[in-house]
Amino acid sequence: MRVARSGEPRGAATARMMSDPPSRVRAPFFKTVLEQIGETPRPVILELGAARQDLLALLHGSGCRLIVANLATAFADAGQANDSGGIAPITDVLRELCQPEPVDIVFAWDFLNFLDVQALASFMSNLAMLCRPRASVHALIVYAERLMPQRPGLLEPADAAHLRVHTGVELDRIAPRYSPDDLRRCTPAYDIDGVRLLGNGMQEYLFKLRR
């Protein structure tokens, strides 16, 4: 991802595109989560994004149940809502999809960036109710960039240790650039098991449900 220059007017920034070829970044916590899946008998995995062959291929043989929520549009809209009520349609969909088994692993990708603080707190709290104790949530937070795309879906798995970052995407939405402290405040039900700065300027998070 290209880093926006400090003080750059928003109008100028919207014209910029990520034009480099898709880049791969090493994602250590993604690898950790996949290893965790391999060690869990019949893991239940929640994918907040679209179904992807790359992820299916990585999960092949795990005997898992993969729940595909495909929430890109809903997330993009929810972040623009000014209260946590904007998140209600999303949590309703998740509640319906995640029945009857509790979730062990959540792949949140870049979705959390599209929620404001209130919506993020509400979403993570609702998500906790759908998860098994000590469930893991893998997420990527825009950190170095000031801008991000209008919709989630910037990343996908490349292999068991790397993520592919899409380019050719217009950056026209202000990124909240949540810090670990911001996220800790929004997610009281979770421990932050680890944070790493990736090669593309995003931070990789591994949350663990506390209870």
Binding site: R42, A50, A51, R52, Q53, L56, L59, H60, G61, S62, G63, C64, R65, L66, I67, V68, A69, N70, L97
Partner: peptide, 22 residues
């Protein structure tokens, strides 16, 4: 199904159960 393949562009919402016992 224990073997599921998905082409890019397909619209899917639901779950994929790959457990052979299921």
């Amino acid at each position: 199904s224990s073997r599921v393949s998905l082409e890019e562009g397909a619209q899917f919402r639901g779950s994929i159960d790959m457990d052979p016992n299921s």
